[in-house]
Computed example of a mutant assay.
Amino acid sequence: MILNFSFKLIAGREGIWCKFALFRTYRALSTAPVDVLWQKIINLADVSWHPLLSSTNAPSGLIAKPGIIYQVVTRLIPIPVQIFVERVRPGELLSVRVLAIPGVEKRVTYQIESTVCGTYVSYSVTLRGWLSPLIWWFIRPYAARVASELAQAAEQIAAL
């Protein structure tokens, strides 16, 4: 687990502004092959393994491509949230931006790397905005489980 954060107070003509940014990465080791993990990540319709998301409006079989916008419903608050797919490097990286509420910007990056020990899955969260500390307080316990839940879901598929 890697944690970086910055907090800046900026004085200007309009008053004092607060800028907050948080970056955290979680990693999990999996015995599942890279292809199985990658298929689990890019399948936008299947969020059954994700501890923060409960459902999506993406049609079955829709694969992540840059520019796609779709909606998900979170487990915390049953309100639809839009997700924008920013970058995709096949077999390596998926980066999305969560368009939830004004005052917070959330970027999520999934990264896969194959090693001799197995396959590492990284889940990185970047929060920016003045509401970031409050949002982080709500999602922190769930965000800590995303990488391990993804690894377990892929291992169950690989075992079949």
Results as ranks from 00 to 15, higher is better:
residue 160 L to A: 08
residue 68 I to H: 04
residue 113 E to M: 12
residue 78 P to N: 07
residue 134 L to V: 14
residue 150 L to D: 00
residue 127 L to T: 05
residue 84 F to R: 15
residue 121 V to G: 03
residue 151 A to Q: 03
residue 38 W to Y: 01
residue 94 L to K: 03
residue 1 M to T: 14
residue 25 T to S: 02
residue 79 I to R: 13
residue 120 Y to C: 07
residue 84 F to Y: 15
residue 23 F to T: 14
residue 119 T to K: 01
residue 49 W to M: 01
residue 24 R to Q: 15
residue 46 D to M: 00
residue 50 H to Y: 04
residue 80 P to R: 12
residue 41 I to Q: 10
residue 63 I to A: 09
residue 94 L to W: 03
residue 138 F to R: 06
residue 126 T to Q: 13
residue 11 A to Q: 12
residue 42 I to K: 02
residue 36 V to I: 06
residue 99 L to T: 11
residue 11 A to H: 11
residue 73 V to P: 13
residue 38 W to A: 02
residue 13 R to C: 05
residue 85 V to H: 00
residue 41 I to V: 14
residue 144 A to W: 10
residue 12 G to I: 07
residue 48 S to M: 03
residue 110 Y to H: 10
residue 85 V to W: 00
residue 27 R to A: 12
residue 10 I to K: 04
residue 55 S to D: 11
residue 75 R to Q: 06
residue 56 T to N: 06
residue 19 K to S: 15
residue 79 I to V: 14
residue 67 G to P: 02
residue 11 A to I: 13
residue 19 K to W: 12
residue 106 K to P: 03
residue 67 G to V: 05
residue 63 I to M: 09
residue 56 T to Y: 04
residue 95 S to G: 04
residue 149 E to L: 09
residue 105 E to Y: 09
residue 136 W to P: 03
residue 84 F to G: 05
residue 115 T to Q: 08
residue 65 K to H: 11
residue 82 Q to I: 03
residue 37 L to V: 00
residue 149 E to H: 14
residue 55 S to G: 07
residue 146 V to W: 00
residue 25 T to M: 07
residue 77 I to Y: 11
residue 98 V to H: 04
residue 158 A to D: 09
residue 64 A to F: 00
residue 14 E to K: 11
residue 85 V to F: 03
residue 21 A to Y: 09
residue 146 V to C: 01
residue 80 P to H: 10
residue 126 T to Y: 15
residue 108 V to S: 07
residue 10 I to Y: 00
residue 76 L to H: 12
residue 4 N to S: 14
residue 125 V to L: 09
residue 150 L to C: 01
